[in-house]
């Protein structure tokens, strides 16, 4: 797992600051950033930071998780549409599993997403919490 830290480091702009590609022609925004607009083939783009709020499009509760998630399961996972229309997948946190619903308003917060036990790197990034203020 020694390369995990470099893989994670490379994604910091997306995970830490939700940086995304906004393409000129289509006006569409994608996270992570990409070189080519998948719809138009356009390469002209600007880097934008995504809004921090949005709503749940769909969700699940992961009850059986891969080994690296250990005792974190069960946890809720959702596809979220942010207020600018950009979509991303994120874990839900600070929420009762049964409260997660389609259409629920959420806010992205900076959290620990994964960590390599107590010895390895801690991977930070966005998670979604119910929007309450």
């Amino acid at each position: 797992m020694t390369m995990f830290s470099s893989r994670n480091w490379r994604e910091y702009p997306h995970r830490y600051r939700t940086e995304a590609s906004k393409f000129k022609k289509s006006g569409k925004t994608y996270i992570p950033k990409r070189l080519v607009d998948p719809e138009t083939g356009d390469t002209e783009q600007e880097t934008v930071r995504l809004p921090e709020t949005g709503k749940v499009l769909t969700h699940t509760i992961i009850r059986i998780a891969p080994s690296q998630w250990g005792d974190k399961a069960p946890y809720a996972l959702a596809i979220i549409e942010l207020t600018d229309g950009t979509r991303l997948m994120a874990q839900m946190t600070d929420v009762e599993m049964d409260d997660v619903k389609v259409g629920m308003e959420v806010r992205l917060e900076f959290r620990r997403v994964q960590s390599e036990g107590s010895h390895g790197v801690i991977s930070y990034g966005y998670k979604a919490v119910p929007k309450w203020y």
């Binding site: 992961i62 891969p66 996972l77």
Partner: peptide, 24 residues
């Protein structure tokens, strides 16, 4: 790997999210 699995997605989880959307 970086934008689904990193966040804890599993295959049952991905299809479950499609199922929820389909049911909805």
């Amino acid at each position: 790997q970086e934008y689904e699995v990193f966040h804890g997605a599993t295959f049952p989880g991905l299809y479950a999210m499609m199922a929820v959307a389909h049911m909805e």
